[in-house]
């Protein structure tokens, strides 16, 4: 006959397994990136975004309501603080055309706008994101002065988690003149555009 202690032990073990599974799910979710960017190798001419040829151009496509992108903005702030003046940074927030402007002016917008040297722009209908192939909020592009794509990807190590990460370190090195081949890092954030915009299911 099964003793009470055994039953209690079994229940505790099941509980632990359940908790473990929960944390595994969380860990998996945090480490699952969004869709990678299909960026053009050179600055697309049809883009309406003005490029400063004197400095590398860093463009961040972000969803104004994505909670995961807050870490990206914080990391951008930290990066720009380290490399002040060495890069021209722009943050383009997605703005559906049928939404009011207030939707875009979120806390995230205000945080980004407060970062020195950062231009915050509206990406009406996600057209620029489409041009640059950005599909996940927090996707960062770094173009050289010659218009060549130097880096694409995210600058966080996980969903919504700040801290040291490969994307930020790569950009920092690129801005210090280190030459690398195109570097790509996973992007952790919400889907930037709707299916109807991307045409994907």
């Amino acid at each position: 006959m099964i003793s009470g202690t055994t039953i209690r032990g079994a229940i505790c073990l099941a509980w632990l397994l359940l908790v473990g599974a929960g944390f595994a799910f969380v860990l998996n979710y945090e480490k699952t990136p969004g869709q990678s960017a299909q960026a053009p190798g050179f600055w697309p001419n049809e883009s309406a975004i003005r490029r400063d040829s004197s400095r590398p151009e860093l463009i961040v496509f972000a969803h104004p309501q994505c909670p995961c992108t807050r870490a990206t903005i914080e990391e951008l702030n930290r990066l720009l603080a380290r490399k002040e003046g060495k890069v021209n940074a722009q943050v383009w927030f997605y703005q559906p055309e049928d939404f009011t402007a207030d939707w875009s002016y979120s806390d995230l917008w205000k945080t980004a706008a407060a970062i020195p040297g950062v231009s915050v722009m509206k990406d009406m209908g996600g057209r620029e994101a489409l041009r640059f192939g950005a599909q996940t909020s927090g996707t960062v592009y770094l173009y050289g002065t010659d218009g060549r794509l130097l880096f694409k990807g995210g600058i966080t190590s996980g969903r919504g988690h700040e801290g040291e990460n490969e994307g930020e370190e790569t950009i920092a090195r690129l801005l210090t003149g280190t030459r690398f081949d195109l570097r790509t890092t996973p992007v952790y954030g919400c889907s930037l555009l709707s299916c109807e915009v991307t045409g994907k299911p």
Binding site: V26, C66, P67, S194, V197
Partner: peptide
Amino acid sequence: LTWAGKESQVHPHVWVALLL
């Protein structure tokens, strides 16, 4: 919430907080 363009749904963190 977690977003996909202008569409949103409950963020998984809310479910995690609730369930886990």
